[in-house]
Nucleic acid binder design. Structure first.
Lengths: 207, 207
DNA sequence: GTCTATATGAGGATAGAC
DNA sequence: GTCTATCCTCATATAGAC
C-alpha cells in the first residue's frame, strides 16, 4: 500500500517541520533536521516538497487558520458581557503566555515577511478574522448592553492591544512566562480599563 | 597612525554590522557581508571581534539604550497632560511605523533570546527605563491633573500597549506602513480611551 | 517512493605574508 | 592590523539504485 504509506510519511514530515520551525525559526532548521525528526531520508523529503521554502509555506498555510480558533469568541452574545470578554481575554493572554503562542509569534515576526502571498492569506484568516468576530460581539454588546461603541473594529483592536500588551515581546526576547496570578491581574486590569473607557457616558462624548 | 585607523575601521565594521543585522537578522547576515560592507577583509573583522556572536552582542549593547531615547517623555510634567501624552504617543507610534523601529523590533524578537545576559541588560535599559519615565510622568499627572491613577506602572503599560497595538507585528510580517493620517487616528483613539478610562471618577471605583 | 551517497555552494573561522 | 588565500563544516539539493 504505497499510497497510504506516502500519505502517512507526508504527515510525519509536515509534523516534524511544524514543530521544528515553530521552535527555532526558518533559518535555524535544516532539511536534515526535518528529515531526521520525521524518520525519513532527505531525498524522500524532497520528493514530497520541492524546496525548503515550499515546505515552510505549507506549514504556514496549515497554521494560519488555527490561530483564530485558539481564542474563544462566541458568535452570538447573550447576557454577561464582562464574562464573555473575560473569557476571550484569558484565552488570548494564555495563548501568548504559554510556549505555543510564543513560537507562532516569533515564527511570523521573523520569517513570514519573506512570503508576501502568505502574508495576505494569513492576515485575512488570522488577525482580521479574529477581529471581525470580536467586533461583531462588541457591536452586539453596544446594542444590548451598557457599552458605548462607535467603531467596533477599533474597540476590538483596543481590547486586543490591552490584553496582548508586552506579553509576546517579552516572551520572545526570552523572559520567563508570567504565572497564572500575574496573567489574571493583567487581564483584570485591562478589562477594567476597557469597560470603563467604553462605558456608556453619564455625560460627555464618546471615547 | 595605526591607532586612529584601527578605531575608524572598528566603527566602520560596527556600522555595517548594525545596518545589516537590523535589516536581515542575525542568521541571514554573513561575516563576509559585514566585511564587504565595511570595506575590510574578513580577517580584519575577526581581529576586532572574536566571533559573530560577540559582534552581535556589541551591536545590541549599543542599540539598547537608544531605544528609550527615541520617544519623548519629559522628566517633569507641567501643564497640558493630554498634550504631553499625545507627544509621547506620536513618537512611539512613528517609531514602530517607520522602518527603524520595525528593524529593531524584529531583531530583538528573532535573535535576542539567544543571549540571556543581553536580555537582562536590554530589558532594564530599554522597556523598563521607558516605562519608569512614563510612570513617573503619569504619577505627577494623577497628583496635579485630572487623572485617577492607582498604579502608575500599570497605567504606563496600558498606554504603551494601546499605542503599540498591532503596529510592530503588522510591520514585521510585511504589511505596508500606515500613512500619517492613519497613525494620527490611531493615536487619537488610543488617547481618548486611555484618558476616559483613567479619568477621575464622577462616581464609581478606580479602573 | 524511498533509500544511500554525493555534488555544490555558502559561511564561520584561521594561517601566514606584509 | 591588515590583507589574500584557504580550511572545514554544514546545508540545500540531486543522482542513481532498489
Amino acid at each position: 500500500m504505497p499510497r497510504e504509506r506516502a500519505a502517512r510519511k507526508s504527515k510525519q514530515m509536515l509534523n516534524a517541520a511544524q514543530r521544528l520551525f515553530a521552535r527555532s525559526g526558518y533559518a535555524a532548521v535544516s532539511m536534515d533536521d526535518i528529515a531526521k525528526t520525521a524518520g525519513v531520508s532527505k531525498a524522500t523529503l524532497y520528493a514530497h516538497f520541492d524546496s525548503k521554502e515550499k515546505l515552510f509555506a505549507e506549514i504556514i498555510e496549515i497554521e494560519s487558520p488555527h490561530v483564530e480558533e485558539r481564542v474563544p469568541i462566541p458568535e452570538v452574545f447573550e447576557g454577561d458581557a464582562e464574562g464573555v470578554l473575560r473569557n476571550f481575554a484569558r484565552g488570548l493572554a494564555s495563548f501568548f503566555a504559554d510556549g505555543r503562542g510564543l513560537e507562532i509569534y516569533r515564527l511570523f515576526v521573523t520569517d513570514l515577511h519573506r512570503f508576501p502571498d502568505l502574508v495576505r492569506r494569513f492576515h485575512a484568516a488570522g488577525p482580521m478574522a479574529l477581529r471581525a468576530r470580536l467586533s461583531r460581539l462588541l457591536a452586539q454588546m453596544a446594542e444590548r448592553g451598557g457599552l458605548s461603541i462607535d467603531d467596533p473594529d477599533l474597540a476590538a483592536d483596543h481590547l486586543t492591544s490591552l490584553i496582548q500588551g508586552r506579553l509576546p515581546f517579552d516572551r520572545a526576547i526570552g523572559l520567563p512566562p508570567p504565572d497564572a496570578a500575574a496573567i489574571d491581574r493583567h487581564v483584570e486590569s485591562a478589562l477594567r480599563l476597557f469597560l470603563r473607557g467604553y462605558a456608556r457616558a453619564s455625560r460627555g462624548g464618546e471615547p
